[in-house]
Simulated assay, not measured.
Amino acid sequence: MAPFSMMTAGVSWLVKSFTVSSCTGSVARCSSVLSAAYFSPVKCLSSQASGPPKRPLNGYMRYVLQQQPMVSRQNPEIKVVDIIRKIAQQWRAMSPEQKQPFQEASLRAREQFKVDLQHYQAQLTPAQVQQQALEKRQKIAKRKAIRKKRELTTLGKPKRPRTPFNIFMSEHFEEARGHGTQAKMKSLLEDWRSLLSHQRQVYIQLAEDDKIRYKNEMKSWEDHMVEMGREDLIREQTLSSKKMAAVKSPAAHKGTQKAKAKATKKATTTARSKTTRKTTKSSSAKTVRTTKKT
């Protein structure tokens, strides 16, 4: 069963990156559409001269590529996401025998990919290997940042405060000169620079109010994250300020003094008890020696 998240993520990529020859016949008759498209090599999987070979598609994605043009012609009124959903339903309804040609083609492409990758890596210089490792780390860091941003959005993290120019631009974007976004932004920037000081002060004050809004919302949100056990999402400056406040607070100071006094009292009591035991032992030894002499 193919996960629908992978389907939706690859919709635009499928539409823009691939062109597949048209297929005739009914969609239900899967055996009639398993012809040359699955046993001939896929052109998009061939290695490029200037870059590494592309990873092969799995069996399901090959089926999507084959069925998408036909389903689009049969249902021109539905969206691309609905087309992918329809193809996924067809894939789930297929028997293992009907899926086998797609999966076998994927296995063959995977073996060819390993050979092409080894050949490509053998031609790289040490500098190119280091550059590829650096690019890989950058891609991983970018993916992590994107995932974290999505998580923060899902958890309802407040939006950052807007600048005075952002507020000005949002208010006047519709009536700005120009037909494209860049042209409008350029004209708005010119208008912003031509504003008088008292006119610009209005937006500066709005930006200051937005900073207060952001500060209050962030405090509530971070308190909620602490209750949820997500201290990892709290800003470093907030953690530092909380530590400093805990150290400087009178209650914490009194607690520290009480703890020190308790420790000192315990150490004194222990020392006295040791001294008492030594004195007792010494007295006992003297008594025993006196008794022996008598």
Rank of each mutant, 00 (worst) to 15 (best):
F4G: 07
T8C: 08
T8V: 08
K16E: 06
K16I: 01
S17M: 12
S17F: 09
F18G: 04
T19C: 03
T19Q: 05
V20G: 07
V20R: 13
S21D: 14
G25P: 05
V27N: 07
A28V: 14
C30N: 08
A37G: 00
Y38N: 10
V42T: 11
G51C: 10
K54S: 02
R55M: 06
L57R: 04
G59K: 02
M61G: 04
M61V: 02
R62M: 06
Q66C: 05
Q68P: 02
P69M: 07
E77A: 14
I83G: 05
I84N: 13
I84V: 14
K86P: 05
I87M: 02
A88N: 12
R92N: 14
A93E: 07
A93D: 14
P101G: 05
F102Y: 15
F102R: 09
Q103D: 13
E104T: 14
A109M: 01
K114T: 03
D116E: 12
Q118D: 12
Q118L: 11
H119D: 13
H119Q: 15
Q123L: 12
T125C: 07
Q128E: 13
A133F: 03
R137G: 06
I140S: 03
R143F: 04
K148Y: 04
K148F: 04
R150T: 02
E151D: 11
T154I: 12
K157H: 15
K159R: 10
R162F: 14
R162Q: 15
R162K: 15
T163I: 08
F165V: 08
I167H: 01
S170P: 00
H172A: 00
E174C: 02
A176I: 00
R177V: 05
G178L: 08
G178Q: 03
H179L: 11
G180V: 09
T181M: 08
K184G: 08
E190Q: 14
W192C: 03
S194G: 13
S194E: 15
S194A: 15
Q199K: 14
I204K: 05
A207I: 07
D209H: 08
D210T: 11
K211S: 04
I212L: 13
R213K: 15
Y214N: 02
Y214W: 13
M218V: 14
D223A: 13
H224P: 01
H224G: 07
I234D: 00
R235A: 11
E236P: 00
S240N: 06
K242C: 05
K243H: 10
M244D: 03
A245H: 07
A245Y: 05
V247P: 00
P250M: 04
G255S: 10
T256L: 09
Q257S: 10
K258G: 02
A261K: 03
A261D: 04
A267D: 14
T268V: 00
T270G: 11
T270E: 15
T275P: 01
T276N: 08
T279A: 10
K281R: 13
S282P: 00
S284M: 07
A285D: 09
K286Y: 10
T287Y: 11
T287A: 15
V288T: 14
R289C: 11
T290I: 14
